[in-house]
Design a binder for these strands. Structure first.
Lengths: 146, 146
DNA sequence: CCGTATCCATTCCGATACTG
DNA sequence: CAGTATCGGAATGGATACGG
């Protein structure tokens, strides 16, 4: 899966992608945010081979993004749940979702939506703000190398 | 690169990942946001094989995320620049960056930073808001299937 | 139901050589 | 400098069979 270890890269984007930047890992994390936690649930949802799923769950666990918890009701089988670090990927998922909504769907074409738990309304679009509160767009911010 | 086409998937996250959810594509897009545009610039920055880079640039162009522009000063060689669709990935990159900053760096460890072009200050942390203006965290929003 | 192990086809990726 | 062509090793991914 890895071309080269980038754990020491000075760019946070590179380190993030080093940890979760492959297709199946991102899809597993998406499903985990949707509440899936069991091996079979992921497999059914994603339709990938079991050996691949097992490998991905293992590396995600090793990297502290998922954690293994004992089965709830005395069941023999355990659950894979997002850790605090894993839940930190929430906004990455939201950003991917909103880009997909804006880019790949014709007006009126149905798709799943992200909704406020309290009210059931759709959430707002993500916005980046400057320190003094101006909304920033792609050209309004630049990366400063270390 | 593709296990299965998910262009028709009802989940926007899946469609997004289908388009850009591999490691090198994300890194190329990162560099494109940093202003790189020439073949050799990407190759030097990323250190990947030229055939792989050529293949990625081709698919990103086919998918409308990058566009080929003629060389600026009458130069023979063209540039790869983000399209409007590609610039829409700005918040995805910001989210990946902020997660990486929070997750992989020890306090005080230096890393590149994202700064407001006008003031030079670091940008705020991304925040998701509900329709009525409450800040939402991971558990406060759920995906409603179509 | 949850995984591991194995086999096999495909793809990825790096390195190199070659053309314009 | 900007690619294309090719080769070989490694990893991916699907399918299946097997044990807890």
């Amino acid at each position: 899966m890895k071309r080269k270890r980038l754990e020491a890269d000075p760019c946070p984007v590179a380190r993030s992608l080093d940890a979760i930047g492959d297709w199946w890992s991102l899809m597993i994390i998406r499903d985990a945010f949707d509440g899936l936690s069991r091996f079979g649930e992921f497999q059914k949802s994603l339709g990938l081979a079991k050996n691949i799923l097992a490998a991905r769950l293992r590396t995600l666990t090793e990297r502290g993004i998922l954690a293994v918890e004992p089965g709830a009701e005395g069941g023999a089988y355990h659950h894979y749940v997002l850790t605090e670090k894993g839940r930190g990927l929430f906004l990455v998922m939201v950003a991917l979702r909103q880009w997909g909504e804006a880019t790949f769907y014709a007006p009126g074409e149905p798709h799943s939506t992200l909704r406020d738990t309290q009210t059931g309304d759709e959430v707002r679009r993500l916005t980046l703000y400057s320190a003094d509160g101006r909304a920033l767009r792609a050209g309004d911010a630049v990366v400063r190398k270390v």
